[in-house]
Amino acid sequence: MAERAHLDFERPITELEKKISDMKDFSVGESVELSGEIASLQKKLEKLRGDVYSKLTRWQKVQIARHPMRPYAMDYIRLLSEGFLELHGDRGYGDDKALVGGFARIGGKSLMIIGQQKGRDTKEKLIHNFGMMHPEGYRKALRLFYMAQKFKTPILILIDTPGAYPGIEAEERGQAEAIARNIREMAVLEVPIVVVIIGEGASGGALGIGLGDRIIMLEYSWYSVISPEGCAAILWRDAAKAPDAAEALKVTSQDVLELGIIDQIIPEPSGGAHNDPEKTAESMKIEILKSINELEKLSTEQLIEQRIKKYRIMGVFDE
């Protein structure tokens, strides 16, 4: 079994997994009957997983969302849709590879899928700019949103970004304007929008393609006004206090659901989506289709009215 990337708190789990896999190899190679031992170790492994994953801190959950093996947007597009036809460019400046988008079918239904894409190895990471979009990415998304509207195609959005790119060129080309415009235009798009946060949902970088009729989070994704590191650097004056910031900001799917910001959490396989991407994609597919079917029953007016109302009531204050 290849050595796989793991987080600190995953170590005992991966060690046990390796032991089981070694034992299986030995049992096959030497024709020794070890199925009893293997079964008992499997049981132990399940219990260990359950124990570790039921006691995760918010910061540990953030780390799962950033797990190097975690499925990315393109992985899910491959797993849950058919015939993805990728479309490129913003027709003004360039093609931002931190954002992928195009037509595809899910369960036979024609959809526009938009997703923030990260890279697996260093080369890919650079190509996709670590999932951090530039203004042309937001404008490419908007172009595809309008196209979806034109052809009455529901929109599926997969969010996974550590933030909109904070760089000189991004400012020069109007990062703030691009995000603001998308948020406003998405509010009145005449087709259903289903948003799934699959990994990181950082701030305006996520919201810039994140307004929708149904907002769903995978169990171990996070969604926040600022990354834990960014918040720690400002309020604690020390980015190393990110674990404290993650607690204070309440960034987990459960937190955000309790605050009334999202509609639903999709549970992940034991140990997180990377342990069973197929199963995760299957759960996503079911929920996405369910949401779209519900939303397609509404008239365009009802759809937009409900969407705006959904955001209108967000906020907690005294009067």
């Binding site: 948020i183 509010a187 926040s224 960034v251 906020g315």
Partner: peptide
């Protein structure tokens, strides 16, 4: 105010 503050961007922009 965490994620609630982020949602004020959506609330104001959609209006």
């Amino acid at each position: 105010e965490g994620i609630l503050s982020l949602m004020q961007m959506a609330k104001t922009s959609s209006l």
